[in-house]
């Protein structure tokens, strides 16, 4: 399966990436290559294989419910582009 130009634009849109028109043929080729690889893997019969959710065959360790984080707002907000009255400011989000 090969991708179309529109697919690349849609993927970029979903990932919130701004891409240049002239770069699209390059992305098209590279992304299609990935899909070809997936197709190759798809050809293997996996009928009796249980899918893994993680490459490591292990299970999640749990953390005790304890509050140990301290307030580091000042440090975090120093590297934010814009803050006001403790809030992070972003371009207006309209619903």
């Amino acid at each position: 399966m090969s991708l179309q130009k529109e697919d690349v634009e849609k993927i970029a849109h979903l990932a919130q990436l701004s891409i240049n028109e002239e770069d699209i043929p390059g992305y098209l080729e590279e992304l299609s290559k990935i899909l070809h690889l997936v197709e190759q893997m798809n050809a293997v019969n996996t009928d009796n294989v249980e899918p893994m959710a993680h490459p490591q065959d292990s299970s999640q360790r749990l953390r005790e419910d304890k509050e140990t984080e301290i307030n580091q707002r000042d440090a975090f907000q120093k590297i934010a582009p814009q803050v006001e009255r403790g809030f992070y400011l972003v371009p207006r989000v309209i619903e």
Binding site: R63, D65, K66, E67, T68, E69, N71, Q72, R73, F76, Q77, R85, G86, F87, Y88
Partner: peptide
């Protein structure tokens, strides 16, 4: 008491972003 994936407090009504690690 703490969040699902971090050890920050879940208490309601704190000053903005003081419980965001």
């Amino acid at each position: 008491k703490s969040k699902i994936f971090s050890a920050a407090s879940t208490a309601y009504g704190a000053e903005p972003n003081t419980q965001a690690c």
